[in-house]
């Protein structure tokens, strides 16, 4: 038997919003430690990894490990039926071919349940090597979303360049060139407005706007986003899910032909 109850059900709604443009189907791997998802987009350019720790749920029971293959478009449709303040419970029997989502209003006066068929997905998991990143940049998630949206007008790619002076985002195309520089903030009233850079060595990498734009669908999840970069390895874009886990996107760089 698997049962996970989340009073802050809107976190799950936001997680689905962050995934549905990039992935059409994926498996949720459930264990007594929590729920995990790892999947590549269809083009195998990016990888998404989601972790929801058991202790972040208000009730969590997972008697035996199970992998629930789901059509994420369908799951997203169902989660859109939950109100932002609804309590969400996910339930499945062992070896079941369906999953049930229960939405309770905070006053318990409205209860809805939706059943969805599970899929048999033969998904491969990738081993992500432990990496000490050359540069780790933390910035407001809304700022990152704005930068990517603005620069996407100029070209298909964004160059992210991190030095000890700050981080520079650049794009070039037919209409011209755009450059946005962010310096590390000296002092801020609110921690979530800060730009912080931890740098071991300068690093410059080029990434496809299309994917970065899809990653910023997770902006609703967290006030800050963390970008981790090292020469010639995938970029990591991480958003925290409250204090119960994270959504991490890995994006392969563009390389010189």
């Amino acid at each position: 038997m698997f049962e996970a109850r989340l009073v802050q059900g809107n976190l799950l709604k936001k997680v689905l919003e962050s995934l549905k443009d990039l992935l059409t189907e994926a498996s949720w791997d459930c264990a007594d430690t929590g729920i995990q998802l790892q999947a590549m987009d269809n083009s195998h350019v990016s990888l998404v990894s989601v972790q929801l720790r058991a202790d972040g749920f208000d009730k969590f029971r997972c008697d035996r490990q199970l992998s629930m293959g789901m059509n994420l478009t369908s799951m997203s449709k169902i989660l859109r039926c939950a109100a932002n303040d609804d309590i969400i419970t996910i339930k499945a029997q062992d070896q079941a071919d369906n999953v049930t989502f229960v939405f309770e209003s905070p006053n318990q006066e409205k209860v809805a349940d939706y059943e969805m068929k599970l899929m048999n997905l033969d998904q491969e998991h990738l081993g992500i090597p432990e990496t000490d990143y050359a540069a780790v940049i933390k910035l407001p998630a809304a700022e990152f979303q704005r930068i990517i949206k603005d620069l996407s007008q100029f070209g298909e790619s964004v160059v992210i360049s991190c030095t000890k002076e700050g981080v520079k985002f650049s794009a070039a195309g037919d209409i011209g060139v755009g450059n946005i520089k962010l310096a590390q903030t000296a002092s801020v009233d609110k921690e979530e407005e800060a730009v912080t850079i931890e740098m071991q060595e300068p690093v410059t990498l080029t990434f496809a706007c299309r994917y970065l734009n899809m990653f910023t669908k997770a902006t609703c999840l967290a006030p800050q986003v963390t970008l981790s970069m090292s020469p010639e390895v995938p970029l990591v874009v991480e958003y925290k899910i409250g204090d119960m886990g994270h959504v991490r996107y890995y994006l392969a760089p563009k390389i010189e032909d």
């Binding site: 990016s46 491969e124 998991h125 081993g127 390895v233 995938p234 390389i255 010189e256 032909d257």
Partner: peptide, 14 residues
Amino acid sequence: MSKQASILSFFNRR
């Protein structure tokens, strides 16, 4: 010109 790399060139299949 730059070319898009695949994530599979960096992470191994388990």
